[in-house]
Design a protein around this nucleic acid. Structure first.
Length: 412
RNA sequence: GGAGGGAUUCCCGAGUUGGCCAAAGGGGGCAGACUGUAAAUCUGCUGGCGACGCCUUCAGAGGUUCGAAUCCUCUUCCCUCCA
C-alpha cells in the first residue's frame, strides 16, 4: 500500500533540498507532475559499487536522498554494482582504481546493503545486481555498447582531461565505466538517477543509452560531494578526513564538532532534516552574534549522531565531548592498556616503548618527539624525558595530545 | 615502430661540473601556545634504531669509483611529437 504525497510543490522542495544540480530541470518537473496525476511512482535509481567495507557519511548522502523519494511514495531501485565495481569508477579520480575480483566485491555487498537498509525501507526497495545483465553478455554485445561512445567525448571529462594533461595514465577499461552505468539505467528503465555531482557525466551517458534503447531518458539529481573534516577535500578514507558510520558515538560526535564552521551548512542540508528557513535563521543569528557557532555545531553533532546511533548514542557522545574537551577532564571510560610481566623490566617500562604499546606512536622516533614536545602526560603530569624508565602502576592514565587516553592495567 | 622528455623521502617539488645529502622549499600530518577539538596566527618536529653514533632510502638490476640521488649499461613504467 503506497501512499503518495500529492502536492507537487511539497515534493519538489523535498527532492531538490541540498541538491547541487537537477537536470534537465524541466524534464524532471514534468515527469513528477505526470507521476502525480497518473498516480504512478517514479522509478528512482541509485547505483552503489561495493568497493570497500568502511562506509562513511559521504557514501550515505545519496541514500538519504533516495530515502526522501521513498517517503514521497516513489519506487526505489538500488543497483548493486557487482560488475561495475570490478571495473572501478574513474569519476573524480586522479589515478586508476585497483580492479577487484568478483569474490571480494560480493563480500562487500553485505555491508552496503546493511548500511543502506539502516536508512531505507527494505520492504519498499528493489535490489538488483548489475551482474545479472552484464555477466551473460557476449563480446558482440559489449562491442555494441562500446560503439555508443566516442573517445573525444570521454576525454572531455574533467577528471580524464586533468589526468591526460598531467601525464597520468588512463586505462581503456576506465573509459567503459560510464557506459556500464548508463546501461544499468536502461535495464531498469530509470526515471531519475541519484548520485554526487561527480556522477553527472555518467548520468548523462545513461540518458543517451536510454534514448538508443527507445526509452524516455532519465533525469539526474546530484548532491554536492560531502567534504571531509579537514574542510577542503572530499570525504575519503585515504585522506583520513572521514566520519565512519561504524564509529563510536563519542568519535562521531567529536569529529563533527571538529569540522570547520564553513562546512556546517552543508552537513545540515545533506544529513539532517532541519528546514532550510531555519538554517537561514541560524545563519542570521550567528552573523549578528546571538548564536554561538559552537552551539549550532552541537546541534548538528547531536542530530547526526542520533541518526546513526539513536538518542542514547547522541547523549553519550555529547557527555563525552563536554567532559573531555569543554571541561578538560579525563573521560570516564577509556581504552585499557594491559601490561604483562614480560613487558616490564624490574617493574619498569621504557616510556617510548609504553607509547608504542599503547599505539600512540608508530616508531620510537615519533614517541621521542611527542615526549620532547610536551605532548605526553602520565597521571596528569607532563613527561619530558624520553629516556625515562617509568615505574609502572596500575590504573594510571597515559595521555597523548588532547584526545588520546589509555588506562594502564597491570596483568598478574 | 621512430625521436625526445621523465620516475626523488606521505604528496608536490629542488638537487644530475660525483663527496658538505637522510636529501632545499611548500603542502599535509603531529605536538605546544591561543581557542569554540572552528578559522586565522605563532613555535617546534616530521626515514629507522634504547640513538650526539649506527642502519636502510632517491623506479628495478648490475657496473665505474676511496665515495653515486648525481656517471655508465640493461630492465620496467609514464608522457610528448611523429607513424
Amino acid at each position: 500500500m503506497i501512499t503518495m504525497e500529492t502536492s507537487f510543490e511539497k515534493q519538489w522542495e523535498r527532492i531538490t533540498r541540498g541538491a547541487d544540480d537537477v537536470f534537465p530541470e524541466e524534464e524532471l518537473r514534468s515527469k513528477l507532475k505526470r507521476s502525480i496525476t497518473e498516480r504512478r511512482p517514479l522509478r528512482v535509481k541509485l547505483g552503489v559499487d561495493p568497493t570497500g567495507t568502511d562506509l562513511h557519511l559521504g557514501h550515505i548522502i545519496p541514500v538519504l536522498k533516495m530515502k526522501q523519494f521513498q517517503d514521497l511514495g516513489h519506487h526505489c531501485i538500488l543497483i548493486i554494482g557487482d560488475y561495475t565495481a570490478m571495473v572501478g569508477d574513474p569519476s573524480g579520480r586522479n589515478k586508476t582504481r585497483p580492479q577487484l575480483d568478483h569474490e571480494a566485491v560480493m563480500e562487500n555487498c553485505k555491508t552496503y546493503q546493511e548500511q543502506a537498509f539502516s536508512i531505507l525501507d527494505q520492504e519498499k526497495t528493489e535490489v538488483v545486481y548489475n551482474g545479472s545483465w552484464f555477466a551473460p553478455m557476449g563480446f558482440q554485445d559489449v562491442m555494441k555498447l562500446l560503439s555508443r561512445m566516442t573517445v573525444a567525448r570521454m576525454l572531455e571529462r574533467d577528471d580524464f582531461a586533468k589526468r591526460y594533461h598531467s601525464q597520468m595514465p588512463i586505462s581503456i577499461h576506465e573509459l567503459v565505466y560510464p557506459l556500464m552505468q548508463g546501461y544499468d539505467s536502461g535495464m531498469i528503465r530509470a526515471d531519475v538517477e541519484l548520485g554526487g555531482t561527480d556522477q553527472k557525466f555518467n548520468i548523462l551517458v545513461g540518458r543517451d543509452i536510454q534514448k538508443d534503447m527507445g526509452q524516455e531518458p532519465q533525469a539526474g539529481v546530484c548532491n554536492p560531494i560531502l567534504l571531509g573534516t579537514d574542510g577542503g577535500e572530499k570525504m575519503s578514507k585515504s585522506l583520513d578526513n572521514y566520519i565512519g558510520l561504524h564509529e563510536t558515538p563519542e568519535n562521531m560526535y567529536g569529529k563533527i564538532m571538529s569540522i570547520p564552521d564553513s562546512l556546517m551548512r552543508m552537513y545540515f542540508e545533506l544529513i539532517t532534516d532541519v528546514p532550510l528557513v531555519e538554517l537561514d535563521a541560524m545563519k542570521r543569528k550567528m552573523d549578528e552574534g546571538s548564536l554561538h557557532p559552537r552551539d549550532a555545531k552541537k546541534r548538528l553533532a547531536q542530530l547526526v549522531t542520533t541518526r546513526f546511533h539513536g538518542e542514547e548514542g547522541a547523549r553519550v557522545g555529547e557527555a563525552y565531548f563536554q567532559r573531555v574537551f569543554s571541561e578538560r577532564e579525563l573521560p570516564q571510560n577509556m581504552e585499557e592498556l594491559p601490561l604483562g610481566l614480560e613487558q616490564l623490566d624490574d617493574g619498569r617500562i621504557w616510556i617510548v616503548k609504553l607509547l608504542r604499546e599503547a599505539g600512540f606512536a608508530n616508531s620510537s622516533g615519533e614517541a621521542r618527539r611527542l615526549i620532547r614536545q610536551g605532548g605526553v602526560k602520565i597521571d596528569g603530569k607532563v613527561m619530558t624525558d624520553p629516556d625515562l624508565d617509568w615505574p609502572a602502576r596500575d590504573g594510571v592514565v597515559l595521555q597523548v595530545g588532547k584526545r588520546r587516553f589509555a588506562k594502564i592495567r597491570l596483568q598478574g
